[in-house]
């Protein structure tokens, strides 16, 4: 159990992959062979420079090239949003002159609208997103563990059903969800229409499905012998699950958590029918109000809001990266 790309061998793999992905067949095996420090030290400088640039490019340089290309591809359309957010009278599409004006008044105004409490939306989205993500990870991990480790009748069918249920066209789901939640709200007003806890419950309904699959695949790669060894030590099932297995699958927990957070953070349809009071609404619902009416559209404020809204997602990803990439290393302490 090693992490494929996190080792020296990982570099080699990347190297080996190089010809196929970057199309530079120049890195022949011969140039790769003398790799030890001594060998490198023993060479004259110019040779070493030339070699090491070639090596550097073969190793990581081309990756930067792709990185920069992707950076432009991914970020370029959003520059329009950033530009509009810095222009008090900005529109999204009117002009190709980006950053004509740079002015932060939109960002200031964003927090000064009592009817559109951006700060509250921001906080709500964070809380709802984090709670939902945590709940989703928990529920999906439980289910994935059962599917991966335990054998029971209906296992295959159950797995398939999980996925199929989510394929139903959701064109009408909203009506049903509304009726369901207003029914539940009559018994438990704490989770009825208009409550954030109710919204979280609805989101948790989607916790299984794809997430379970994602985790299931990962659980399968954790050797059963680990469980068995722990069992011999007298650990209970719950202890094995919470104490050992979950740690080993940290990368996928982080991925599922992130996906769930992003999904919740940008979810609009259900949130807009569930949350009625502006103080309880989420960013996606609130932001949309800035531009939904042709006659009172405010692209500038909206863009500022959208730019800030992207920060939590990015921050969370930045934070979770170490679990996603390095998770296995930490899990199976060597």
């Amino acid at each position: 159990m090693t992490n494929p790309f996190n080792t020296q061998q990982g570099a080699e793999i990347g190297d080996r992959l190089n010809p196929l992905v970057a199309g530079s067949g120049a890195t022949d095996r011969a140039s790769r062979a003398p790799r030890t420090v001594q060998t490198a030290d023993g060479r004259v400088l110019p040779t070493r420079r030339r070699r090491s640039f070639g090596r550097w490019f073969a190793d990581t340089g081309w990756r930067h090239l792709i990185g920069v290309v992707m950076l432009v591809f991914a970020a370029f359309p959003l520059l329009y949003v950033l530009s509009a957010s810095l222009n008090p009278t900005g529109t999204l599409v009117g002009s190709n002159q980006l950053f004509r004006v740079v002015d932060f008044s939109n960002y200031v105004e964003l927090f000064q609208r009592p009817q559109q409490p951006y700060a509250a939306w921001f906080l709500n989205s964070l809380v709802i997103g984090l709670v939902t993500a945590a709940g989703t990870v928990f529920l999906a991990a439980l289910a994935a563990y059962a599917f991966s480790r335990l054998r029971f009748t209906g296992r295959r069918v159950g797995l398939l059903t999980l996925l199929l249920v989510q394929m139903f066209p959701q064109l009408l789901g909203v009506v049903a969800i509304f009726l369901l939640m207003s029914g539940i709200g009559e018994i438990f007003p704490q989770v009825g229409i208009g409550t954030q806890s109710g919204l979280i419950l609805v989101y948790l309904g989607g916790a299984l499905g794809v997430n379970t699959y994602l985790m299931y695949g990962f659980f399968n790669t954790i050797p059963v012998s680990i469980d068995e060894a722990a069992k011999l030590d007298g650990a209970s099932h719950a202890q094995i699950f919470f104490g050992i297995v979950l740690r080993l699958v940290a990368p996928i927990l982080a991925v599922v958590g992130l996906l769930s957070f992003i999904g919740t953070f940008s979810e609009f349809v259900i949130a807009s029918i569930m949350l009625t009071d502006p103080q309880t609404q989420t960013l996606a619902v609130g932001l949309y109000q800035f531009v939904s009416q042709e006659t009172s559209r405010n692209w500038a404020i909206f863009s500022a809001g959208a730019v800030l809204a992207a920060i939590p997602v990015m921050a969370l990803f930045l934070y979770l990266q170490k679990y996603i990439i390095g998770g296995l290393t930490a899990g199976s302490v060597k």
Binding site: V175, F178, G185, I193, S272, T276, Q281, Q289, S292
Partner: peptide, 21 residues
């Protein structure tokens, strides 16, 4: 006063009114 998206009010109202909520 419940703040809603102006454009969405009509259709949501049509759905919600019959439930009495």
């Amino acid at each position: 006063l419940v703040t809603k998206d102006f454009g969405a009010i009509r259709d949501e109202f049509i759905t919600q009114a019959p439930t009495g909520n």
